[in-house]
Amino acid sequence: MNRRFFITLTGAAAVAWDSVLAGAPESSPNYKVTDHWWAMLIDVDKCIGCGNCVRACSVENDVPEGFFRTWVERYQVDDMHLDDPLVDSPNGAKNGFPPLPPGKGLTGPGVKEFFVPKLCNHCADSPCTQVCPVGATFTTPDGVVLVDETYCLGCRYCVEACPYGCRFIHPEKNVAQKCTLCYHRITKGLTTACCEACPTSSRMLADLKNPNDPIHEFMKKHSVQVLKPHMATGAKAFYANLDGSVR
């Protein structure tokens, strides 16, 4: 592989990078919160469980070791016991999925296996922001659930209230943390770190207020669900090809 351009192209790189930092490479130089309504599309059939998203997220967002803003689960479901799947997520799939040790997994003709990426659902009616006693976590006007680290008490009520296990307390900062949907990236026209790093486009950042966003076409053509719909959280992580056994 050739690396001859590095010095000569310094100028071009600087221009490209500056445009990122200035906000949005192409379209919107001024980001307007009211013009967007962010969501995430996940195609379960495309996930290969490589863990790229988990690693990318942890670097992009300085996620403390042992906690996860996104993770991947491996499901094994026997058709005799749809409500009792065998699930694992070794270290959140940060190192991918080693094959299950012999005798550990399910076997048989009716066993199916798949990976399910998880992240904050950025719920429109989020139970976590509802319970925050001081307004330290909130949904932005563009539909992203964020935590104000300088205001969070560390009471952990939001962690208890999230049905999906997406929140944790940062061990050093003692405040709640969670997926920000890479708010520092998407407001500059970039996609999230997990989407950027996903080799199979299993994850796709989506803007429901953008009429040209491919999500509209995708939602029309696919049967799409959210996790734990009975929780009525207005979840905006939309899953295509999701098996009913997934919790």
Binding site: Q130, V131, C132, P133, V134, G135, A136, Y151, C152, L153, G154, C155, R156, Y157, I169, K173, N174, V175
Partner: peptide, 27 residues
């Protein structure tokens, strides 16, 4: 509760900006 908080020094925020939708804020 005070001892349990990650940031006990911020507990007065409960009085400053109580979040009306939170069951805990009225404490």
């Amino acid at each position: 509760l005070q001892l349990h908080l990650g940031h006990p020094e911020r507990s007065f925020e409960m009085y400053l900006t109580p979040h009306t939708s939170s069951a805990m804020a009225m404490f």
